[in-house]
Nucleic acid binder design. Structure first.
Lengths: 116, 116
DNA sequence: CATCACGGTATCCTTTTTGACACTATGGGC
DNA sequence: GCCCATAGTGTCAAAAAGGATACCGTGATG
């Protein structure tokens, strides 16, 4: 998303905007979506999301973590092992994620989505 | 939102992404949100959304129209009169908009939103 | 010894988005 | 005649986001 408003900046003030600023980013929703089903490691996410680069994935994960939507757990092992999972707050996004998916499934039947 | 995926491009294929690409843009959600309550004219929207510039508002409205989410009606008058309202498809987004707002209201109490 | 996997970083470049600002047509009001 | 409002458009430039590519350390594998 071009970018939503900077972190919780009460412009129009509405919570919708603030909410959006947290899930704004080309991959965030997908990441959250994949994590709905459970914990995943960095490269598992990478494989589940075709097209994302390492840099982008790292970047988006860090932002999600900073916004308290996901939890990052590092295991001091070699090779490194880092697990990502939804935080309580992230889990509370489930209804939104599902509403979005439902809408997409219902109103965007692949290509013939031109009928207003 | 920096930008979601280009128009309905089945990357991860998931409908969530496609749905997002339609509502991606710094002002789209707010516009749709304002229109939930009914038809509005260009300058009414402009006044309701502080911070948006004429160019941006026009731009976002055109994209929403192109995606079939809103309807634009021009009255051949002077001064010009253009009314915007949600299309059927746009209206079907209501659950998503509300879920988002509800989540925002519930999980983002202004500033103390740091608790994971 | 060379290579692979893991989970990143760092750097550079391009594309996309957004913002600033000026300009337009027309009719009415003063 | 001059100014106002409406609903834009056009151009330019800045900022932000995203992508490509290379590199790192370590231990196990072959």
């Amino acid at each position: 998303m071009p970018r939503a408003v900077k972190k919780a900046q009460t412009s129009t003030g509405c919570s919708v905007e603030r909410a959006l600023s947290l899930i704004d980013g080309k991959w965030k929703i997908v990441i959250l979506y994949k994590l709905l089903r459970g914990t995943l490691r960095f490269n598992e996410l990478r494989r589940l999301i075709p097209g994302v680069t390492q840099r982008m994935l790292t970047h988006q994960l860090r932002e999600l973590e900073a916004d308290g939507l996901i939890v990052r757990v590092v295991y001091a092992q070699v090779p490194p092992r880092v697990e990502y999972s939804l935080s309580t707050r992230g889990q509370s996004l489930e209804p939104v994620l599902l509403a979005l998916k439902h809408w997409g499934d219902t109103n965007l039947s692949s290509r013939e989505a031109e009928a207003a």
